[in-house]
Design a protein around this nucleic acid. Structure first.
Lengths: 203, 203
DNA sequence: TGCAGTTTTAACCAAATGGTTAAACTAATT
DNA sequence: AATTAGTTTAACCATTTGGTTAAAACTGCA
């Protein structure tokens, strides 16, 4: 069996955990080196600077959610089916990498230009929101849903999927949940959020 | 006219803007001193350490939202009225101090214990969620709304109110909004989010 | 074995950072 | 004018941090 982990991979792993935990400003190169079990100089040998290393982690985190959405939206499903799938996939993926949401939330606000540049460089991997908007408009004309406005709806969907992971510590405390209870809660949301949205818009 | 701004106030002001902009880890004492137009030593003269200064800003930010909610929930309104009021007040207050949301989001995840301790020290100023839960249960028994579960509903309300301010830079970019357009968008949300929620749960 | 290229390390450096100190300035009080 | 308490400053310090350098250890291969 091929169990060889290259130093590069070890570094990426270490950097990921350090950055997700402390953010760009809070993470320390020495700490990353320690987590990877290597020397600090070796870190700079592989990735010239903190900025460079960070860029890699940031991009990986940022684009983690895109491909699945692409897949879903490529089918020509009914609008409600799309919503159910999108919600389930979104919550599932974020839940699996659950420290990605607060990390991105912070870095996106600290350096918005980075996001904008990334999105424009990577036109190929862009989330195809147009498809969603199209399905929305079809549902409008067929009087299936209320005219809430596609922007409003989109932001509502994303909010409901992502926010619980950002507010997690307070949610857990205020609602007296331990890790397991929170995990159950998220599981239920995978279907309940979709039904919530559908009820909110269906005629 | 009394226009005397004490050095202490200047520092707090400066610290607030610096912390909200860069977070605890990213903010620099020298920068705070500069913004306040004073010497760095003077900063330490008034507030012994960065940690102490941060604590003050953090608490102020954290408790900014509480009092109005307390007021709303003290009336015995219909559940739907409560939802409309809560949503409007929440979005309004966060919108007025719009960098509070991403700031709190980050710090809350970086140091969850701080939040928990704060909430337990300040039992007096706690948001009275019990009242909301009570109004919820009344609506359930009178068959006014679906049984979605109070936790689920609460998290949904908060998500819809807060998230747009955290995701603001991406939202603005993806939906091609400038500051004014985003501001309009938020204004519309003050009523539309409430209607969205009510439609989602009413029978 | 010897050589060339890569990987790893220990030692080091300049800049930045949070924090301290001791002295100077200011404005009431005696 | 002298005292005093509070305020402000310049100079300084120890530590941390991101980053560099030069040499050592390891690798495959002629």
């Amino acid at each position: 069996m091929e169990k060889e982990i290259t130093t590069e991979e070890k570094i990426i792993q270490a950097a990921k955990s350090a950055f997700l935990e402390h953010g760009m400003a809070g993470a320390r190169m020495q700490d990353i080196a320690d987590r990877a079990g290597i020397n600090k100089a070796l870190l700079h040998y592989y990735f010239r600077s903190k900025e460079k290393l960070f860029e890699i982690i940031f991009k990986e985190a940022f684009f983690k959610l895109v491909p699945q959405l692409n897949e879903i939206l490529s089918h020509d499903d009914d609008f409600f089916i799309i919503i159910r799938k999108v919600v389930a996939v979104y919550i599932e993926t974020i839940g699996k990498n659950s420290y990605i949401a607060p990390f991105l939330a912070h870095e996106i606000n600290r350096n918005p230009e980075r996001v904008i540049n990334m999105l424009e460089e990577n036109v190929g991997r862009k989330i195809p929101f147009e498809k969603l908007v199209l399905a929305y408009q079809t549902s409008i004309t067929s009087k299936q849903i209320r005219p809430i406005g596609p922007d409003m709806l989109l932001v509502n969907i994303i909010s409901l999927c992502i926010f619980p992971f950002i507010g997690r510590p307070i949610i857990k405390h205020v609602l007296s949940m331990d890790e397991d209870a929170f995990s159950d809660f998220i599981d239920r949301r995978k279907v309940e959020v979709a039904e919530f949205i559908i009820n909110a818009i269906k005629l």
